[in-house]
Amino acid sequence: MPEVTPDSTPDLRSLVADWLDLETAADALGVSETQLRTMLRRHELVALPPSPGDRAQVPALFVQDGLVVKGLVGLLTVLHDGGYDPAQSVAWVFTDADLPGRPIDALRENRGSEVKRRAQAMAF
């Protein structure tokens, strides 16, 4: 798997299998679309087109049990502060980082400390 860096342009459709449109994501989180858009503006969640020409969508694995996956908000902040744009951040979260596995899997299994440490180390 190629390394994801702030200078790379990822192919999101090949990395992320399932996406939620904004209405479905809002429903899954139990919030209004207006509240979801506020979450997006605050970088608490990411929505972007999986392929050119698509509408903005949220990776389905970012939602778990009606909530944003534990640790994702902080991780997205670290990646944003490290120079990653939303597409690069999503690609990093879905790329195998020898954790074992992908960062999104570690977050969903409540093993987010190592994921955040690795993201913080990349910023230096």
Rank of each mutant, 00 (worst) to 15 (best):
R42I: 00
R42Y: 06
R42W: 03
H43V: 06
H43S: 13
E44T: 06
E44I: 05
L45G: 04
L45P: 03
V46E: 06
V46K: 09
V46N: 03
A47C: 04
A47T: 05
A47L: 10
L48P: 11
L48N: 11
P49L: 11
P49G: 15
P49H: 05
P50Q: 08
P50K: 06
P50I: 08
P50F: 12
P50M: 10
P50A: 06
S51P: 00
S51F: 05
S51T: 14
S51H: 12
S51V: 14
P52H: 10
G53A: 04
G53K: 03
G53D: 09
D54A: 15
D54W: 00
D54S: 13
D54K: 07
R55F: 00
R55I: 03
A56D: 15
Q57S: 15
Q57M: 15
Q57L: 03
Q57N: 02
V58Y: 08
V58N: 10
P59W: 06
P59D: 09
P59M: 10
A60V: 06
A60E: 13
L61T: 04
L61G: 01
F62H: 14
F62N: 05
V63C: 06
V63M: 02
Q64I: 01
Q64H: 14
Q64Y: 01
D65A: 15
D65W: 02
D65I: 01
D65Y: 01
G66L: 03
G66Y: 01
G66N: 04
L67A: 12
L67Y: 07
L67W: 07
V69D: 02
V69C: 07
V69N: 09
V69H: 04
K70I: 04
G71D: 05
G71I: 00
G71C: 10
G71N: 10
L72I: 07
L72Y: 04
L72H: 03
L72T: 10
V73Y: 06
V73E: 14
V73T: 15
G74K: 10
L75V: 11
L75E: 01
L76C: 06
L76Y: 05
L76M: 12
L76I: 11
L76G: 13
L76T: 07
T77G: 11
T77M: 03
T77E: 15
V78W: 03
V78T: 15
V78C: 04
L79R: 13
L79A: 11
H80S: 13
H80I: 08
H80G: 07
H80L: 07
D81N: 14
D81K: 14
